[in-house]
């Protein structure tokens, strides 16, 4: 039992280290910003989640107490990682909007974040007035 729990915690810790290292290595090696966004937001979040799971199991199996802080941190990280990724991608899109370095959307439409901006430009109270 003790050996089994040791093996589980050790495997989780090693997986966490590998995922964290891969995430940060991808940040160095991938070719441009939009692909570079993938590595930290997915691999590193998985690495931290694995660390937190290992910590929770360690304190449960070896110290005999269940701590809920890890679950809170995991939830918070898993909730905020997509939001920060979305914000960073949006900042990149708007920053390089005029240069033709942005990736293709695959559809005839432009990126959705630019459409929102175009809608904001229209005046608000013009529903009944005819278009000039």
């Amino acid at each position: 039992m003790s050996l089994l729990s040791e093996i589980i915690v050790s495997v989780l810790l090693v997986a966490a280290g590998v995922f964290g290292l891969v995430g940060s290595f991808g940040l160095l090696k991938l070719p441009d910003t939009m692909t570079r966004l993938h590595a930290p937001t997915k691999a590193t979040t998985l690495g931290v989640g694995s660390t937190l799971l290992a910590s929770m199991l360690y304190f449960l199996l070896f110290q005999g107490r269940l701590s809920w802080h890890e679950l809170m941190i995991t939830m918070f990280l898993l909730l905020t990682a997509p939001i920060t990724a979305n914000f960073i991608a949006k900042a990149h899109l708007h920053r390089f909007r005029d240069q033709e370095t942005l990736p293709d959307t695959g559809t005839p439409d432009d990126w959705a974040t630019f459409e929102d901006e175009a809608k904001e430009m229209e005046p608000v109270m013009t529903r009944d007035t005819p278009r000039r």
């Binding site: 940040l27 930290p40 660390t51 990280l77």
Partner: peptide, 13 residues
Amino acid sequence: VLALDTMVINIIA
């Protein structure tokens, strides 16, 4: 900014 965000996550780990 992306590297700073990753750094924060690694420091949490």
